[in-house]
């Protein structure tokens, strides 16, 4: 089942996975952003790319937002997008890219911040309160694993391991990313979140 939220089928934000979906929905709820658009999970980044041309043909579509991870190579990601969206600017805008393709307003946000390589989890890590007491222990533990050659995951997934370890040590261990925002473990008032919200506002409400 594809996850869909929102009532307006003419303004859509595509996300690449279930965590991204729940995080976005939680942020929207937290900031009481009106449901002027729908969020849809494409279940994979490949599928998201595959869908772009058809989305541009969708009946009465006005706005298409795309939220994806920059992953290991932001430049490569941008090139991939360019093949599907010819009007894409040369470089990502640090405050989120917005342009028009045909008559459709298109927005791109590259997780975490349109500048660094990374993904959703890097963005979430940046929302951990600055004075958090547990995070130094998480970091130490992960460093320990690495030193003892016990790190099974790839380097790019460090932030994934970090945030999920941190969430495993909260009051309710193993809270999913979206719920962590709802439950206030994460500091969504953190100003790292603001540029993303601003981008959403510019894309969907203006």
């Amino acid at each position: 089942m594809t996850l869909k939220s929102g009532k307006n089928p003419n303004k859509i934000l595509l996300v690449e996975g279930v965590d991204d979906f729940h995080v976005v929905c939680a942020i929207l709820k937290k900031y009481q952003i009106p449901e002027t658009f729908s969020v849809e999970n494409t279940e994979g980044v490949e599928k998201l790319f595959e869908q772009i041309p058809t989305r541009l043909l969708q009946s009465e579509i006005q706005t298409l937002g795309i939220l994806i991870g920059a992953d290991t190579n932001l430049k490569k990601r941008w090139k991939q997008l360019k093949t599907k969206l010819p009007n894409l600017p040369e470089k990502p805008n640090p405050s989120g890219t917005i342009f028009t393709q045909g008559e459709i307003k298109v927005g791109i946000w590259l997780m975490p911040d349109n500048n660094l390589d990374g993904m959703l989890e890097d963005f979430i890590c940046s929302l951990v309160p600055a004075d958090d007491k547990l995070m130094p222990f998480v970091e130490e533990t992960l460093q320990n694993l690495k030193d003892k050659k016990l790190q099974n995951f790839k380097e790019i997934h460090c932030s994934k391991a970090k945030i999920h370890t941190w969430l495993a040590w909260q009051k309710t261990p193993g809270t999913p990313l979206g719920l962590a925002i709802t439950k206030k473990y994460l500091d969504e008032k953190n100003n790292k979140c603001l540029p993303f919200l601003e981008w959403l506002k510019n894309l969907f409400t203006k």
């Binding site: 594809t2 089928p9 494409t42 599928k47 595959e50 869908q51 041309p53 058809t54 989305r55 043909l57 969708q58 009946s59 008559e103």
Partner: peptide, 26 residues
């Protein structure tokens, strides 16, 4: 489109994707 009736080209491939992903193209 702004009062003028236009034709929008939809390829077989796009049609297939739209059906698979429940994208409204009617």
């Amino acid at each position: 489109k702004n009062g003028l009736i236009k034709h929008v080209e939809i390829s077989d491939e796009n049609l297939k994707l739209a059906m698979e992903n429940d994208i409204e193209i009617r």
